[in-house]
Simulated scan of single mutants.
Amino acid sequence: MKISFPPETPAYCEAGPALAFAAVVNDIRLECSITAEALEDHFGAASIGKEDLQHAFDAHNHTIHVATRRLLTELGAMPVVLHSSYFRFAE
Rank of each mutant, 00 (worst) to 15 (best):
F89H: 11
A36M: 03
C32R: 07
L82P: 02
S85A: 10
N26Y: 03
V66R: 10
R69M: 08
L39N: 13
F57P: 00
V24W: 10
G49T: 09
A38R: 01
P10W: 06
H83R: 15
I3D: 00
A67L: 08
E31M: 13
I3N: 04
D41Q: 11
I64D: 02
H42L: 10
A18L: 03
V80Q: 11
F57I: 10
Y86V: 02
K2G: 05
T63P: 00
C13R: 12
P6Y: 08
C13G: 14
A90G: 02
I64Q: 03
Y12H: 11
G16C: 09
R70S: 10
N26L: 12
N26M: 12
Y12L: 13
A67G: 12
A38H: 01
R88P: 01
A38D: 01
I64N: 05
F87A: 00
H42N: 01
K2D: 15
R70D: 12
E51N: 14
A36C: 08
T68A: 11
A20M: 00
L75T: 15
L72S: 09
D58Q: 07
V66E: 09
A18S: 15
I34L: 05
L39Y: 01
A11R: 15
F5Y: 08
A38P: 04
H55K: 11
A77E: 13
D52T: 03
R88V: 03
F21I: 05
A23W: 01
F43A: 00
L75C: 15
V81S: 09
I48E: 13
A22Q: 15
C32F: 01
E51L: 11
F89G: 00
R70K: 12
L75Y: 06
G49S: 11
Y12G: 08
V80H: 10
I48G: 07
S4W: 00
P10V: 04
F87T: 08
A22W: 05
V80D: 10
A36N: 05
T35D: 13
P17A: 13
L82W: 14
R69V: 00
A46N: 04
N61T: 15
E51R: 05
Q54I: 07
C13S: 08
A59D: 08
T73G: 03
L75F: 08
F87S: 04
A56C: 05
A18H: 09
A11H: 09
D27H: 01
G76E: 11
H65F: 14
S84H: 06
H55G: 01
R29I: 03
L30F: 04
A36S: 13
E51K: 06
H65V: 00
V81Y: 01
T63E: 09
L72Q: 07
L75H: 10
T9N: 13
D27Q: 07
L19Y: 12
P6D: 05
A67D: 04
V81M: 14
H83P: 00
V25W: 10
N61D: 12
L75W: 04
A18G: 14
D41Y: 08
